[in-house]
Amino acid sequence: MRILAIDTSSQSAGCALLEDGRLLGEFFTNVKLTHSQTILPMVQSLLDQTRASLSDVDLFAVTTGPGSFTGLRIGLSAVKGMAHALGKPCVGVSTLEALAWQFCGQELLVAPVLDARCAQVYTALFRWEGETLTRLEPDQAIPIAQLEQRLKNEKNAVFLVGDGAEMCYNMLNERVPLLRLAPPTMRYTHAGALALAAERAAGLGYTVSAEQLAPAYLRLPQAERELLAKQQSV
């Protein structure tokens, strides 16, 4: 099964081609360019350089959120367009789960963190035990202070990964001694890991049509949402 995976959900952008567990090619960029202008040329280059054709793709994978509002819409639109035109199935993967998949095969805890702005992060918590991934917390938008509470009592090292990882590490590492930062090569979302997550999901039957594919924006807790204007917060 050939999977074309696309991620434009956060600061970085990328695409990958996976065939039966083997990564055939991957493209990753992390520059301040608009994903809408880079993602389709990236997919074209990937297909050209792997001598693959779009019509050989059996399944499309995309990160459905949480993440950047514009970014999620770009990735979903691109995948919906291609999958609809070719009549192929899709798999939508949580951006946080795709980040956790970068640690596949390890024995550790992973806390993916995406910067949700205003001292908030999108986060979850996963445990890898070899090939088994266990979700310990759902995808949530929480204040960074709450992330500290969640992680400080962990008895094992917790790896931070995602576009908010460095920020959270710098803010919390003195108070959360077992906090670890993913190395630069693994810190941002990689479409190869997304493709692996999608392959497993597809094996479990979690495929949808292009029409059914939908973004999963995370809403903030009520109290956080309403505190935008300063006079209301006093």
């Binding site: 514009t70 205003c118 903030l220 309403e226 935008l228 204007a229």
Partner: peptide
């Protein structure tokens, strides 16, 4: 625009 979700969805 009066809440965080509305602000988020302006991009």
């Amino acid at each position: 625009v009066s809440d965080f979700d509305a602000l988020y969805s302006t991009g």
